[in-house]
Simulated assay, not measured.
Amino acid sequence: MSDLLAYFKIHSTSDLVWLGLGVIAQLMFSLRFIIQWLVSEKAKRSVMPTAFWWFSLIGGVMLLAYGVHRGEPIIILGQGLGIIVYIRNLMLVHQGRKTDLPTERES
């Protein structure tokens, strides 16, 4: 067991908590693909649901925190840039919903 802990660089309870966060973050990040696939299968066409972008953002922020804590520049760079894309897509979804609202004349 100590070899496994050493392999994952776990020397304290804090390290174990951070490893747990990293695993949960990766799971959150991966769930977006499953959601996108299931929604697309149901619609019989490729669909990008809003949940895809929310899971991307949440997983990305969690992975960024993990990367910063572990001092991993590749994770920091990748997730930092990705978060910008996820936020922008959520902004576009929100703007699209605003323009899709019926006007007073239409209601």
Rank of each mutant, 00 (worst) to 15 (best):
99 T>K: 15
9 K>E: 13
66 Y>H: 07
81 L>A: 11
13 T>G: 12
59 G>D: 13
101 L>R: 14
1 M>V: 10
78 G>C: 05
10 I>Q: 11
80 G>W: 00
5 L>G: 10
21 L>Q: 13
78 G>N: 10
75 I>R: 04
2 S>T: 12
58 I>Y: 10
11 H>K: 09
76 I>C: 00
87 I>S: 02
71 G>Y: 01
77 L>C: 07
91 M>D: 07
92 L>M: 14
9 K>V: 05
78 G>K: 03
86 Y>N: 08
5 L>N: 13
52 F>W: 06
66 Y>V: 04
87 I>R: 03
100 D>C: 06
39 V>R: 05
11 H>L: 00
88 R>F: 15
102 P>T: 06
79 Q>E: 14
48 M>K: 04
59 G>Q: 12
104 E>Y: 09
52 F>V: 08
38 L>Q: 15
60 G>E: 09
95 Q>V: 06
89 N>Y: 03
100 D>K: 12
18 W>A: 13
88 R>T: 14
33 F>W: 14
56 S>V: 02
23 V>Q: 00
55 F>P: 09
74 I>Q: 14
12 S>I: 09
68 V>A: 07
62 M>D: 05
21 L>F: 15
55 F>K: 07
28 M>V: 15
84 I>F: 05
10 I>E: 12
45 R>L: 04
38 L>S: 08
90 L>N: 03
106 E>F: 01
68 V>N: 02
69 H>I: 04
8 F>Q: 06
2 S>H: 11
